[in-house]
Simulated assay, not measured.
Amino acid sequence: MRLSHGAYYLTAYIDGKQKWIPLGTDYASACARYAQLENIDDRGMPERKFSELANRFEADCFPRYSANSQRSYRSWLKPLRRVFGPVPIADIRQSHAARYLDASKYKVSANRQVSLLSVMLGEAVRWGWIDVNPLQKMRKHQEEERRRYLTDDELQRLVDAADFQMSRLIRIAYLTSLRKSDIVAIRWEDLEDNALTVTQQKTKSPVAFSLNGELGRLFDELRESQSNGCPYVFVNKRHTQVSDRTVDTYWWKVRDLSGVEDVVFHDIRRKRLTDLTTTHGEAYAQIVAGHKDRKSTARYYTPDVIKVDLPEK
Protein backbone atom coordinates (compact mmCIF):
# COMPACT_ATOMS: atom_id res chain seq x y z
CA MET A 1 0.00 0.00 0.00
CA ARG A 2 1.37 3.40 -0.97
CA LEU A 3 0.56 6.97 0.05
CA SER A 4 0.58 9.55 -2.73
CA HIS A 5 -0.80 13.11 -2.61
CA GLY A 6 -2.90 12.39 0.47
CA ALA A 7 -4.49 9.17 -0.84
CA TYR A 8 -3.66 5.49 -0.40
CA TYR A 9 -3.16 3.10 -3.32
CA LEU A 10 -2.64 -0.60 -3.92
CA THR A 11 -0.07 -1.34 -6.64
CA ALA A 12 -0.83 -4.50 -8.59
CA TYR A 13 0.46 -6.12 -11.76
CA ILE A 14 -2.24 -6.80 -14.33
CA ASP A 15 -1.30 -8.27 -17.73
CA GLY A 16 2.34 -7.50 -16.99
CA LYS A 17 1.70 -3.80 -16.27
CA GLN A 18 1.72 -2.00 -12.93
CA LYS A 19 -1.65 -0.53 -11.93
CA TRP A 20 -2.45 1.86 -9.05
CA ILE A 21 -5.80 1.03 -7.41
CA PRO A 22 -7.18 3.86 -5.20
CA LEU A 23 -8.07 2.87 -1.62
CA GLY A 24 -9.26 6.25 -0.31
CA THR A 25 -7.85 8.94 1.96
CA ASP A 26 -8.79 7.44 5.35
CA TYR A 27 -6.03 5.15 6.64
CA ALA A 28 -8.28 2.68 8.51
CA SER A 29 -10.67 2.34 5.58
CA ALA A 30 -7.73 1.99 3.18
CA CYS A 31 -6.25 -0.83 5.29
CA ALA A 32 -9.58 -2.66 5.32
CA ARG A 33 -9.95 -2.28 1.57
CA TYR A 34 -6.33 -3.36 1.07
CA ALA A 35 -6.86 -6.53 3.13
CA GLN A 36 -10.01 -7.32 1.15
CA LEU A 37 -8.36 -6.88 -2.25
CA GLU A 38 -5.15 -8.67 -1.31
CA ASN A 39 -6.89 -11.58 0.44
CA ILE A 40 -4.69 -11.31 3.55
CA ASP A 41 -4.10 -14.71 5.17
CA ASP A 42 -3.75 -15.55 8.86
CA ARG A 43 -0.09 -14.55 8.88
CA GLY A 44 -0.92 -11.07 7.65
CA MET A 45 0.60 -11.73 4.21
CA PRO A 46 -1.22 -11.44 0.87
CA GLU A 47 -2.15 -14.71 -0.79
CA ARG A 48 -0.33 -14.19 -4.07
CA LYS A 49 -1.25 -16.35 -7.04
CA PHE A 50 1.34 -17.67 -9.46
CA SER A 51 -0.29 -15.63 -12.24
CA GLU A 52 0.55 -12.45 -10.27
CA LEU A 53 4.14 -13.62 -9.83
CA ALA A 54 4.44 -14.37 -13.55
CA ASN A 55 3.11 -10.93 -14.47
CA ARG A 56 5.49 -9.08 -12.18
CA PHE A 57 8.48 -11.25 -13.10
CA GLU A 58 7.87 -10.59 -16.79
CA ALA A 59 7.48 -6.85 -16.21
CA ASP A 60 10.33 -6.30 -13.74
CA CYS A 61 12.89 -9.04 -14.41
CA PHE A 62 12.76 -9.76 -18.14
CA PRO A 63 14.58 -6.50 -19.05
CA ARG A 64 17.70 -7.83 -17.27
CA TYR A 65 18.09 -10.61 -19.83
CA SER A 66 19.09 -10.70 -23.48
CA ALA A 67 16.41 -10.79 -26.17
CA ASN A 68 17.20 -14.44 -26.84
CA SER A 69 16.84 -15.36 -23.15
CA GLN A 70 13.57 -13.44 -22.95
CA ARG A 71 12.17 -15.48 -25.84
CA SER A 72 13.16 -18.71 -24.10
CA TYR A 73 11.73 -17.62 -20.75
CA ARG A 74 8.48 -16.49 -22.37
CA SER A 75 8.06 -19.89 -24.03
CA TRP A 76 8.77 -21.68 -20.72
CA LEU A 77 6.31 -19.43 -18.88
CA LYS A 78 3.37 -20.53 -21.04
CA PRO A 79 3.09 -24.10 -19.67
CA LEU A 80 3.89 -22.87 -16.16
CA ARG A 81 1.00 -20.41 -16.36
CA ARG A 82 -1.37 -23.16 -17.53
CA VAL A 83 -0.48 -25.47 -14.65
CA PHE A 84 0.27 -23.11 -11.75
CA GLY A 85 -1.67 -19.97 -12.77
CA PRO A 86 -4.39 -19.95 -10.06
CA VAL A 87 -2.24 -21.64 -7.39
CA PRO A 88 -1.15 -19.53 -4.39
CA ILE A 89 2.64 -19.43 -4.51
CA ALA A 90 2.81 -20.11 -0.76
CA ASP A 91 1.24 -23.52 -1.47
CA ILE A 92 3.77 -24.64 -4.10
CA ARG A 93 5.91 -27.56 -2.90
CA GLN A 94 8.75 -29.63 -4.33
CA SER A 95 6.30 -32.50 -4.74
CA HIS A 96 4.26 -30.36 -7.16
CA ALA A 97 7.34 -29.54 -9.23
CA ALA A 98 8.36 -33.22 -9.17
CA ARG A 99 4.98 -34.27 -10.57
CA TYR A 100 5.33 -31.55 -13.22
CA LEU A 101 8.70 -33.01 -14.25
CA ASP A 102 7.41 -36.58 -14.33
CA ALA A 103 4.35 -35.66 -16.41
CA SER A 104 6.34 -34.04 -19.21
CA LYS A 105 7.44 -35.99 -22.27
CA TYR A 106 10.22 -33.49 -22.89
CA LYS A 107 12.59 -33.90 -19.97
CA VAL A 108 15.10 -31.19 -20.88
CA SER A 109 12.39 -28.58 -21.48
CA ALA A 110 10.71 -29.54 -18.21
CA ASN A 111 14.03 -29.06 -16.41
CA ARG A 112 14.36 -25.55 -17.84
CA GLN A 113 10.78 -24.69 -16.88
CA VAL A 114 11.22 -25.86 -13.28
CA SER A 115 14.52 -23.97 -13.07
CA LEU A 116 12.71 -20.83 -14.18
CA LEU A 117 9.97 -21.52 -11.62
CA SER A 118 12.64 -21.69 -8.91
CA VAL A 119 14.16 -18.39 -10.04
CA MET A 120 10.72 -16.77 -9.92
CA LEU A 121 10.04 -18.07 -6.42
CA GLY A 122 13.43 -16.72 -5.39
CA GLU A 123 12.32 -13.29 -6.57
CA ALA A 124 9.07 -13.74 -4.63
CA VAL A 125 11.17 -14.20 -1.48
CA ARG A 126 13.03 -10.95 -2.24
CA TRP A 127 9.72 -9.13 -2.68
CA GLY A 128 8.36 -10.45 0.62
CA TRP A 129 5.62 -12.49 -1.01
CA ILE A 130 6.79 -15.78 0.57
CA ASP A 131 9.28 -16.65 3.29
CA VAL A 132 11.39 -19.33 1.57
CA ASN A 133 11.92 -20.74 -1.90
CA PRO A 134 10.56 -24.31 -1.74
CA LEU A 135 12.46 -25.37 -4.88
CA GLN A 136 15.98 -24.70 -3.61
CA LYS A 137 18.19 -27.75 -4.26
CA MET A 138 15.38 -29.30 -6.29
CA ARG A 139 16.53 -32.49 -8.02
CA LYS A 140 15.58 -32.54 -11.69
CA HIS A 141 15.92 -35.01 -14.55
CA GLN A 142 19.44 -36.24 -15.26
CA GLU A 143 20.70 -34.74 -18.53
CA GLU A 144 23.38 -36.16 -20.76
CA GLU A 145 26.07 -33.61 -21.54
CA ARG A 146 26.36 -33.02 -25.28
CA ARG A 147 29.76 -34.23 -26.49
CA ARG A 148 29.31 -33.83 -30.26
CA TYR A 149 32.49 -32.66 -31.98
CA LEU A 150 32.12 -31.37 -35.53
CA THR A 151 35.04 -32.54 -37.68
CA ASP A 152 36.80 -30.33 -40.22
CA ASP A 153 35.29 -32.38 -43.04
CA GLU A 154 31.76 -32.04 -41.62
CA LEU A 155 32.16 -28.28 -41.21
CA GLN A 156 33.31 -27.96 -44.82
CA ARG A 157 30.35 -30.04 -46.03
CA LEU A 158 28.00 -27.66 -44.23
CA VAL A 159 29.71 -24.64 -45.81
CA ASP A 160 29.58 -26.24 -49.28
CA ALA A 161 25.85 -26.96 -48.93
CA ALA A 162 25.00 -23.36 -47.96
CA ASP A 163 24.21 -20.37 -50.18
CA PHE A 164 26.44 -17.30 -50.43
CA GLN A 165 25.39 -15.54 -47.22
CA MET A 166 24.82 -18.64 -45.09
CA SER A 167 28.19 -20.14 -46.00
CA ARG A 168 29.93 -17.00 -44.81
CA LEU A 169 27.80 -16.86 -41.67
CA ILE A 170 28.91 -20.42 -40.83
CA ARG A 171 32.59 -19.59 -41.36
CA ILE A 172 32.30 -16.40 -39.28
CA ALA A 173 30.54 -18.41 -36.56
CA TYR A 174 33.49 -20.79 -36.50
CA LEU A 175 36.27 -18.19 -36.63
CA THR A 176 34.73 -16.05 -33.86
CA SER A 177 32.87 -18.75 -31.85
CA LEU A 178 30.08 -16.19 -31.45
CA ARG A 179 26.58 -17.31 -30.64
CA LYS A 180 23.95 -17.10 -33.37
CA SER A 181 22.15 -14.19 -31.67
CA ASP A 182 25.41 -12.19 -31.59
CA ILE A 183 26.21 -12.92 -35.24
CA VAL A 184 22.87 -11.72 -36.63
CA ALA A 185 23.25 -8.54 -34.53
CA ILE A 186 26.57 -7.54 -36.14
CA ARG A 187 26.40 -4.09 -37.75
CA TRP A 188 28.79 -2.63 -40.29
CA GLU A 189 29.69 0.01 -37.72
CA ASP A 190 31.07 -2.79 -35.52
CA LEU A 191 33.91 -3.19 -38.04
CA GLU A 192 36.38 -0.41 -37.31
CA ASP A 193 40.16 -0.05 -37.07
CA ASN A 194 40.64 -3.44 -38.73
CA ALA A 195 38.71 -5.21 -35.96
CA LEU A 196 35.26 -6.62 -35.30
CA THR A 197 34.13 -5.56 -31.81
CA VAL A 198 31.14 -7.33 -30.27
CA THR A 199 29.56 -7.14 -26.82
CA GLN A 200 28.10 -10.58 -26.30
CA GLN A 201 24.43 -10.48 -25.36
CA LYS A 202 24.53 -13.35 -22.89
CA THR A 203 27.68 -12.51 -20.93
CA LYS A 204 27.86 -8.75 -21.67
CA SER A 205 31.57 -9.33 -22.34
CA PRO A 206 33.17 -7.26 -25.12
CA VAL A 207 35.56 -9.05 -27.46
CA ALA A 208 37.47 -7.79 -30.51
CA PHE A 209 38.59 -9.94 -33.44
CA SER A 210 41.31 -8.91 -35.87
CA LEU A 211 40.08 -8.63 -39.45
CA ASN A 212 43.36 -9.86 -40.88
CA GLY A 213 43.14 -13.06 -42.89
CA GLU A 214 39.99 -15.04 -43.64
CA LEU A 215 37.67 -13.17 -41.27
CA GLY A 216 38.35 -9.84 -42.96
CA ARG A 217 37.97 -11.39 -46.41
CA LEU A 218 34.56 -12.84 -45.51
CA PHE A 219 33.25 -9.45 -44.40
CA ASP A 220 34.67 -7.82 -47.55
CA GLU A 221 32.77 -10.33 -49.69
CA LEU A 222 29.56 -9.67 -47.78
CA ARG A 223 29.99 -5.90 -48.10
CA GLU A 224 30.51 -6.18 -51.87
CA SER A 225 27.31 -8.23 -52.20
CA GLN A 226 25.17 -5.59 -50.46
CA SER A 227 23.95 -2.37 -52.02
CA ASN A 228 20.83 -1.71 -49.94
CA GLY A 229 22.32 0.42 -47.17
CA CYS A 230 21.13 -1.88 -44.38
CA PRO A 231 23.17 -1.29 -41.20
CA TYR A 232 23.27 -5.04 -40.47
CA VAL A 233 25.76 -7.41 -42.06
CA PHE A 234 23.35 -10.33 -42.42
CA VAL A 235 20.05 -9.49 -44.10
CA ASN A 236 16.87 -11.25 -45.20
CA LYS A 237 15.05 -11.07 -48.53
CA ARG A 238 13.51 -7.73 -47.51
CA HIS A 239 17.02 -6.36 -46.94
CA THR A 240 16.49 -5.93 -43.21
CA GLN A 241 18.20 -7.66 -40.29
CA VAL A 242 17.89 -11.43 -40.52
CA SER A 243 16.31 -13.07 -37.45
CA ASP A 244 17.47 -16.05 -35.39
CA ARG A 245 14.50 -18.05 -36.63
CA THR A 246 15.27 -17.34 -40.27
CA VAL A 247 18.84 -18.51 -39.71
CA ASP A 248 17.40 -21.66 -38.10
CA THR A 249 15.33 -22.31 -41.23
CA TYR A 250 18.37 -21.93 -43.48
CA TRP A 251 20.44 -24.07 -41.10
CA TRP A 252 17.99 -26.98 -41.26
CA LYS A 253 18.13 -26.91 -45.06
CA VAL A 254 21.93 -26.80 -45.04
CA ARG A 255 22.11 -29.65 -42.56
CA ASP A 256 19.83 -31.84 -44.70
CA LEU A 257 21.66 -31.04 -47.94
CA SER A 258 25.08 -31.68 -46.39
CA GLY A 259 24.16 -35.08 -45.00
CA VAL A 260 25.84 -34.21 -41.68
CA GLU A 261 23.82 -35.92 -38.95
CA ASP A 262 23.14 -35.03 -35.32
CA VAL A 263 24.41 -31.46 -35.61
CA VAL A 264 23.06 -28.20 -34.20
CA PHE A 265 24.29 -24.67 -34.90
CA HIS A 266 25.81 -24.36 -31.43
CA ASP A 267 28.14 -27.27 -32.27
CA ILE A 268 30.13 -24.80 -34.37
CA ARG A 269 30.97 -22.86 -31.20
CA ARG A 270 31.86 -26.11 -29.42
CA LYS A 271 34.21 -27.07 -32.25
CA ARG A 272 35.97 -23.69 -32.30
CA LEU A 273 36.52 -23.58 -28.54
CA THR A 274 37.75 -27.17 -28.56
CA ASP A 275 40.16 -26.36 -31.39
CA LEU A 276 41.41 -23.21 -29.63
CA THR A 277 41.88 -25.06 -26.35
CA THR A 278 43.93 -27.70 -28.15
CA THR A 279 46.13 -25.24 -30.06
CA HIS A 280 46.34 -22.20 -27.75
CA GLY A 281 45.27 -23.40 -24.31
CA GLU A 282 42.18 -23.03 -22.16
CA ALA A 283 42.93 -19.47 -21.02
CA TYR A 284 43.00 -18.21 -24.62
CA ALA A 285 39.78 -20.07 -25.47
CA GLN A 286 38.12 -18.49 -22.43
CA ILE A 287 38.99 -14.98 -23.67
CA VAL A 288 37.56 -15.69 -27.11
CA ALA A 289 34.42 -17.25 -25.61
CA GLY A 290 33.82 -14.27 -23.32
CA HIS A 291 33.38 -16.53 -20.30
CA LYS A 292 34.05 -15.17 -16.82
CA ASP A 293 34.59 -18.67 -15.44
CA ARG A 294 36.99 -21.24 -16.91
CA LYS A 295 34.54 -24.00 -15.99
CA SER A 296 32.11 -22.59 -18.58
CA THR A 297 34.77 -22.86 -21.28
CA ALA A 298 35.83 -26.32 -20.13
CA ARG A 299 32.31 -27.63 -20.76
CA TYR A 300 32.83 -26.93 -24.47
CA TYR A 301 36.08 -28.88 -24.68
CA THR A 302 35.37 -32.13 -26.53
CA PRO A 303 38.58 -33.96 -27.45
CA ASP A 304 38.30 -37.16 -29.49
CA VAL A 305 40.63 -39.03 -27.14
CA ILE A 306 41.78 -38.10 -23.66
CA LYS A 307 45.32 -39.35 -23.08
CA VAL A 308 46.15 -40.52 -19.58
CA ASP A 309 49.75 -40.93 -18.44
CA LEU A 310 49.95 -43.99 -16.21
CA PRO A 311 52.65 -44.16 -13.54
CA GLU A 312 55.52 -46.52 -14.28
CA LYS A 313 55.84 -49.63 -12.17
Rank of each mutant, 00 (worst) to 15 (best):
Leu3Glu: 13
Ala7Arg: 09
Tyr13Thr: 03
Leu23His: 10
Ala28Gln: 15
Ala30Leu: 02
Cys31Arg: 13
Gln36Ile: 04
Leu37Val: 05
Asn39Cys: 11
Asp41Trp: 06
Asp41Tyr: 07
Arg48Leu: 11
Lys49Ile: 12
Phe50Gly: 08
Phe50Arg: 07
Leu53Lys: 02
Glu58Leu: 05
Glu58Thr: 13
Ala59Asn: 10
Asp60Lys: 13
Phe62Ala: 13
Ser69Met: 07
Gln70Thr: 07
Ser72Asn: 15
Ser75Tyr: 12
Trp76His: 14
Pro79Leu: 11
Pro86Asn: 08
Val87Glu: 13
Pro88Ile: 05
Ile89Cys: 12
Ser104Met: 11
Lys105His: 11
Tyr106Met: 11
Ala110Glu: 01
Ala110Ser: 04
Ala110Val: 01
Asn111Phe: 01
Leu117Asn: 04
Leu121Phe: 02
Ile130Lys: 03
Pro134His: 02
Leu135Ile: 06
Leu135Tyr: 02
Arg147Lys: 14
Glu154Leu: 02
Ala162Gly: 07
Gln165Ser: 07
Arg168Leu: 00
Ile172Phe: 00
Leu175Thr: 04
Ser177Val: 10
Lys180His: 10
Asp182Asn: 03
Leu191Met: 11
Asn194Thr: 07
Thr197Lys: 00
Val198His: 00
Lys202Tyr: 04
Ser205Phe: 05
Val207Gln: 00
Ala208Thr: 07
Phe209Leu: 01
Gly213Pro: 01
Leu215His: 00
Leu215Ala: 03
Phe219Glu: 02
Asp220Ile: 04
Glu221Val: 01
Arg223Thr: 06
Arg223Ile: 01
Arg223Met: 08
Ser225Gly: 04
Ser225Trp: 09
Asn228Lys: 06
Tyr232Asp: 09
Val235Lys: 04
Arg245Phe: 09
Asp256Trp: 08
Asp256Tyr: 08
Leu257Tyr: 12
Glu261Thr: 13
Val264Asp: 05
His266Gln: 02
Asp267Ser: 01
Arg269Trp: 00
Thr277Gln: 06
Thr278Phe: 13
Thr279Ile: 05
His280Asp: 13
Ala283Asp: 10
Lys292Val: 13
Lys295Trp: 07
Thr297Ile: 03
Thr297Tyr: 01
Arg299Ala: 06
Arg299Asn: 10
Pro303Val: 14
Ile306Phe: 06
Leu310Glu: 13
